[in-house]
Computed example of a mutant assay.
Amino acid sequence: MTARTGLVWDARWEVVSGIGRFSREVRTRLAIPTLEAGGAAPVSPRGLLDLELAALRERRGGRAHPPRALVCPGFMAPLAWPAPTAVVVHDLMHRDVPGEAGRARRAYLDTVVRRSVRAAAVVLTVSDHSRDRILEWSGVAADRVVTVGNGVGPAFTPQGPRRAEDRPYLLYVGNHKPHKNLPRMLEAFARVPGRPLLLLSGDPAPAVDGPARALGVAGRLRFLGRPDDGALAAAYRGAAATLVLSTHEGFGLPALESMACATPVLASPVTSLPEVVGDAGLLADPLDVGSMTEGMTRLLTDDTLRARLATAGAARAAAFTWERVAARVADAVAAHLGAAPPGGWPDVPHP
């Protein structure tokens, strides 16, 4: 499709988070200019005001040149933007999971964010599970919500340094929010024989420390802080398995990164995770402590199973590239917004 207008991207989301990684990986591959909208956090009061002020400037600039279309990678576009918008909604976690958000935030999602989604020319998301929920929640026409997926970065490969500990370890990568199911996961870990270690990204926090002390496993936990991609890949490679035992996910990027490093995954068979893991991981009921304990024990002791899943996981992860995600985003934006970056779309491999 011939582009009718220019294109700009709200890059304020590019911090350490899943949204930030998606934004950075896709925007840089598509060479889309960034929106000038101040440096405040996008969802802070100042950040929301900055976005509306950017919309006002874009409207005034339209007297000299056509307003540019806008891609917002973090679910919220300004309602007053004077050209078509694309909004990325990774999931509806704050809407669907008890304890993830208070009443005020849920009301904000159901009013302001839903209006932004309905006003967008196209809504992009990362899994078919999220797409189904967005369609149900928003009432947007099915052809305006497009699954583009997620990718895995070049640091995550089977080859490379491996983290070493004084005994086998399991790995958890993620935050400490309720949907991550950490209390049950820790209870299951406490029942695993052999006293393995559990390595966790981030720093000690009450959501982990309290249950770990009560279960008597605090001395077998190690915290990684915020490792860069190289250190995180080394932690994946050294692990007996990665645990992704959430009760809800919009995608599940740690499962993909672990498989790309040829490390088996123990995952929940819920929401988006079956789309990511397929038959290349071991599944356990996230509400059944015994099921999770059994899965952890098998992956620590069954070398044949671990080798089979390592091979299957690496093969499956190879299909999830950021180039393919960027190509799907470019196709959706060109089709629904009629827009392109300066100089046109770069040559990215299509799925």
Rank of each mutant, 00 (worst) to 15 (best):
T2D: 11
T5S: 07
W9N: 02
S17H: 11
G18Y: 10
G20L: 11
E25D: 14
T28A: 06
R29C: 10
A37D: 04
G39W: 03
A40L: 03
A41P: 09
P42C: 15
V43P: 00
S44G: 03
R46W: 01
G47M: 05
L49Y: 08
L51T: 10
R57W: 07
R63N: 03
P67E: 03
P73V: 11
P73I: 15
F75L: 15
F75G: 11
P78S: 10
A83E: 06
T85L: 04
H90K: 13
H94C: 08
V97F: 08
P98A: 03
D110I: 00
R118K: 02
A119G: 03
V123N: 08
T125V: 11
D132E: 13
R133S: 05
W137E: 08
A141G: 09
A141K: 08
D143Y: 01
D143S: 02
V146C: 04
V148M: 01
G149R: 05
P154R: 05
A155G: 01
G160V: 00
G160W: 02
G160N: 04
R162W: 00
R163M: 14
A164H: 06
A164F: 04
A164E: 11
P168R: 14
Y169K: 00
L170R: 12
N175E: 14
P178E: 02
P183H: 00
M185V: 09
M185G: 03
L186R: 14
A188N: 07
A190V: 13
R195L: 00
L197H: 12
D203V: 02
A207C: 03
V208G: 01
D209F: 01
V217P: 07
A231R: 11
A231I: 00
A233G: 06
R237N: 05
A240Y: 06
L243E: 07
L245P: 10
S246I: 10
F251C: 15
L253N: 09
A255M: 13
A255I: 13
C261E: 04
A267M: 08
S268V: 10
V270P: 07
V270L: 14
P274A: 07
V276K: 10
V277M: 09
A280K: 09
L282M: 15
A284T: 10
D285L: 00
V289K: 06
G290L: 00
S291T: 10
R298W: 13
L300I: 15
T304C: 02
R306F: 05
T311H: 12
T311M: 06
G313Y: 02
A314Q: 05
A317I: 04
A318H: 05
F320Y: 15
F320L: 07
R324G: 15
V325P: 13
R328P: 08
R328N: 08
V329N: 04
V329K: 02
D331F: 01
A332W: 02
A334N: 12
H336Q: 03
G338T: 09
A339R: 06
G344F: 06
P349G: 01
P349R: 13
H350E: 01
